Computed example of a mutant assay.
Amino acid sequence: MDRIHDLAVAPAVRAVYGPQDLSSAPAFAGGFINFGHWAGIPLDRPLTTEDRVRSQRDLYRHVLGALDGADARAVEVGCGLGIGAALALEEFGFAAVTGVDIHPEQLERARRANAGLLARAPERLRFAHGAAERLPFEDGRFDRLYSVEAAQHFRDLTAFTREAARVLRPGGRLAVTSFFLPVGAEDAGGELAARLESFASGLDLAHPLAALVDALGTAGLTDVRTESIGDQVWPGLDRFLAGVDMPVQWPRNFLPSYRDGLLDYYVITASRPPTTNT
């Protein structure tokens, strides 16, 4: 049974990841579709496409490095083109990765982008149609769950964290990275919508960091930790965008919004407690 057949996808999300194919935009060179982790990349010179691709790969590396995923079975929620899933297998030694995405067009692109790996090791890389709020897997299927710059699109953080806890085995770990409203700016959604078209259109949702942290705890996950990495994301992204010919300039407002304390970029980790005998 298709567990997501009745789950609505916001029109802006459907358009951007469907026919518009955000991965083809120059700002997302390399197909990873994330803002990047720019630590170690000099920003005092013109940035290249190679720098941009490195930043996106390094964001995955930063997240995957927090998971200790060697020989683990993992699921990536919001996998896009699946290039990050391939990186998890090739660089971090995950035993298997299943990429989940709500957009059939993205899954088709992911299968094309990873055709060689799928042919060589079909037991290690899989793709599945599913939603963050309704993952199409049995309980306890995975050792690790991660999501890279997709949570800003999730309609229901409580449903996502409940599903994450369900599909993780006891002792499993989770890592999520995306941009959220920091503590003290929980009511900044209106201001962000005035500055950033992605919030005004409903493509991105103004989720408070505290809402995700609370939802993880409610779902029974423990050892919840948050790491702000805004300094490693926004300045480098803005420096790169300054050299890209874009049809609109509103993405340059991410850096001022960060500096004004309206949003930040975080890595959030948590664990499902191991089963204990009483």
Rank of each mutant, 00 (worst) to 15 (best):
V183E: 15
P122G: 07
Q56V: 04
R126V: 04
A164P: 00
T218C: 04
I229T: 07
V77A: 08
E149A: 10
P247S: 15
W38S: 03
G40H: 12
P11A: 06
A175I: 01
R195K: 11
E50S: 15
R120H: 05
A206L: 12
D231W: 09
L118K: 01
W234V: 01
R126F: 05
D68R: 12
R259D: 12
E108R: 11
R120W: 02
G82P: 01
R252C: 06
A115I: 08
L168T: 08
Q56S: 14
A96N: 06
D68W: 10
R54C: 10
I268S: 02
V224I: 15
D238L: 09
P208Y: 08
L209N: 03
Y266D: 02
H153P: 08
G116W: 05
G36V: 14
A270R: 00
L64P: 04
A188Y: 01
V77C: 08
T275A: 14
P46T: 14
R61W: 06
L135H: 00
A96V: 10
C79E: 00
V100Y: 01
D51G: 15
E123P: 03
V183M: 13
S228T: 09
A113W: 01
E197G: 13
E186K: 13
A210H: 00
P19T: 06
L192I: 14
L135G: 00
L81D: 01
R272A: 05
T222H: 08
R252Y: 06
P122K: 06
D223N: 13
R112L: 11
E163K: 03
A188Q: 02
P247T: 13
A12C: 07
D2C: 09
A131Q: 00
E133D: 14
G18I: 12
R169Q: 10
D101C: 07
A66F: 05
A215V: 08
L262T: 02
L221Y: 03
V75T: 11
L87S: 05
A110D: 02
G243P: 11
R120N: 03
V176E: 01
D238Q: 08
V267Y: 00
E50A: 15
F142Q: 06
H5M: 09
P46K: 14
Y60H: 13
F32A: 09
A85R: 03
D58E: 11
G220C: 13
E50R: 15
Q106G: 09
H207R: 09
A175G: 04
L47V: 13
R225T: 12
A211V: 08
A8Q: 02
L47M: 15
L174W: 04
L43C: 15
G93Q: 05
Q152H: 12
P11V: 06
F32P: 02
D156A: 02
L64V: 11
H62R: 14
R162M: 00
G184F: 12
L255G: 09
F154H: 06
W234L: 08
L87E: 05
Q152E: 13
L212F: 08
L117G: 07
G236K: 00
S147D: 12
L22H: 02
A25R: 13
D2P: 12
D21P: 02
L67N: 04
R126A: 15
G99R: 03
T276G: 09
R14A: 14
H103D: 13
R124F: 07
E50T: 15
A110E: 03
A27Y: 04
D156S: 02
H153A: 10
Q152I: 10
L192C: 14
